[in-house]
Computed example of a mutant assay.
Amino acid sequence: MKWFVAVEWTLLIMVFLRVLSGLIELTVAGLILRFNSIEKAIVLNGLLAVIGPTIFILSIVIGLVGITDKLSVPKFMFIGTGAVCILIGARL
């Protein structure tokens, strides 16, 4: 049985970004509880509104860079358009 599985660096970076994002979310949740203030909770949620999409875009860009040799330019544009649509839809 094969126990060692090779994982691409691109995938590891994407996983790290998702784990980091989750840890940031949990940390902010703890800070909101600790501060026990609606005003501070709004500020912290505002910070998360910037961090979340940034990690999302970074993760997609890293993934696309990792598969540059496998996709054509129109497919890249289609994926990029889809990511932008997700961000626009989440904001409206």
Rank of each mutant, 00 (worst) to 15 (best):
K2Q: 05
K2M: 05
W3P: 13
W3Y: 09
W3D: 08
W3C: 07
F4R: 04
F4S: 06
F4C: 04
F4Y: 12
V5W: 06
V7N: 13
W9I: 00
W9A: 01
L11N: 06
L12D: 04
L12G: 01
I13F: 04
V15S: 01
F16A: 10
L17N: 02
L17Y: 00
L17P: 00
L17H: 00
R18M: 12
V19P: 00
L20F: 10
S21N: 14
G22Y: 03
G22R: 04
I24K: 06
I24P: 01
I24F: 02
E25F: 08
A29T: 09
A29H: 07
G30A: 09
G30R: 11
G30N: 07
L31A: 09
L33R: 11
L33G: 13
L33T: 11
R34Q: 10
F35R: 09
F35W: 03
S37A: 09
S37Y: 04
I38Y: 00
E39M: 07
V43H: 05
V43N: 03
N45R: 05
G46N: 10
L48E: 13
V50W: 03
I51Y: 07
I51A: 14
G52K: 14
P53Q: 01
P53A: 02
P53E: 03
T54Y: 06
F56S: 12
F56P: 13
F56A: 13
F56W: 10
I57M: 12
I57R: 00
L58A: 15
S59E: 15
S59Y: 11
I60M: 11
V61I: 15
V61C: 14
I62Q: 09
I62V: 15
G63D: 12
L64E: 13
L64T: 05
V65R: 07
I67A: 09
T68N: 08
T68A: 11
D69S: 15
D69F: 14
D69C: 08
K70R: 14
K70D: 12
L71Y: 09
S72H: 08
V73E: 03
V73Y: 06
P74L: 02
P74A: 02
P74S: 04
F76I: 15
F78V: 11
I79A: 09
G80F: 11
A83V: 14
V84E: 02
V84L: 15
V84R: 03
I86G: 02
I86W: 02
L87I: 12
I88F: 04
G89V: 02
G89T: 04
R91N: 08
L92I: 01
L92F: 09
